[in-house]
Measured scan of single mutants.
Amino acid sequence: MSIQHFRVALIPFFAAFCLPVFAHPETLVKVKDAEDQLGARVGYIELDLNSGKILESFRPEERFPMMSTFKVLLCGAVLSRVDAGQEQLGRRIHYSQNDLVEYSPVTEKHLTDGMTVRELCSAAITMSDNTAANLLLTTIGGPKELTAFLHNMGDHVTRLDRWEPELNEAIPNDERDTTMPAAMATTLRKLLTGELLTLASRQQLIDWMEADKVAGPLLRSALPAGWFIADKSGASERGSRGIIAALGPDGKPSRIVVIYTTGSQATMDERNRQIAEIGASLIKHW
């Protein structure tokens, strides 16, 4: 067993022997300050990975656009099909120029040879490739089937209704393509630590998230040396920005953090900075 597999395998073990964890309200002060700075709603939740206990939250049951954070859930659904023998990570999918949508930095380079399901999930999570996400959605039956998968997991909140890039419209009070911080955190925890996926698939999912290449300005920018993070960011219209992450010190994840914001007129750089500052406060008061 590799060191990485050993780390994931021990998560349920540590759950039975973990020391108590305590929240620090200073982080919530920073979350509220971020709302003021951005002139927008901010949703935040911090969940103990082992016990599932909510350590701190702000607007945990308000809806926010999922943006590209849905791609982790999508690849979780794909992996569940792999575990059930209904899909193969090595299966090659061919597509055409007509399938390409905006922001497809990986898939646009493989029009001649296609990409495997594994490569598409990697592109969707690590590079947030939109065409990769659409091709993967097709393999499971579309957005409604992803919503059904989540319902079967016990998540009756999170929903995907449209494809890339339309799902990023982020219209106020529109429940399409939205989640709540509490629902997303719970669902992510189930995918990473529960029995829904095999150990190999849980490890694959967290490996893809750990290799995320487009979330550098967010929580990763505040991460001390030696800390672990596996994450997925998202951005969409109407000043929306978000990130879902499993992180912790000593090279292993111990908490789930979900941050969403929407309705801001601030620049992308400012939205990134506010999320990074929330992360810095979280780490300082860990």
Rank of each mutant, 00 (worst) to 15 (best):
Q4A: 11
R7D: 08
L10G: 10
L10F: 13
I11V: 14
F13M: 14
F14G: 07
C18A: 14
P20T: 15
H24T: 08
K32Y: 05
D36L: 03
L38V: 04
R41S: 06
G52S: 03
F58C: 05
E61T: 04
M66S: 01
M67V: 05
V72A: 05
L73S: 08
V82H: 05
E87I: 09
E87C: 04
L89F: 11
G90I: 09
G90W: 13
H94Q: 13
Q97C: 08
D99W: 07
V101G: 04
Y103L: 04
P105S: 04
H110R: 09
L111E: 05
S122G: 13
T126C: 11
T126I: 07
D129H: 00
A133S: 09
N134H: 01
L136E: 00
L137E: 01
T139Q: 10
E145Q: 14
E145C: 07
T147V: 07
T147I: 04
T147N: 04
T147G: 04
T147Y: 05
A148T: 10
H151D: 12
H151T: 12
M153K: 04
H156A: 08
T158L: 00
R162A: 04
E166S: 09
E166R: 06
L167Q: 02
N168I: 04
E169T: 15
D174G: 03
R176E: 04
D177E: 03
A182D: 07
A182M: 15
A183K: 04
T186M: 15
T193L: 13
E195R: 09
L196V: 13
T198P: 03
A200W: 07
S201A: 11
L205I: 09
I206E: 06
W208M: 03
E210D: 04
E210S: 09
E210V: 14
K213L: 12
V214I: 09
V214C: 06
G216T: 07
P217A: 10
L218C: 03
R220E: 01
S221G: 05
P224F: 00
E237F: 10
R238N: 15
A245G: 04
L247A: 11
L247V: 08
P249R: 04
D250M: 07
K252M: 10
K252N: 10
P253H: 05
S254K: 09
V257C: 04
I259V: 10
T261M: 09
T262A: 10
T262R: 08
G263R: 06
T267L: 06
M268F: 05
D269V: 09
E270K: 10
R271S: 09
E277H: 04
K284R: 05
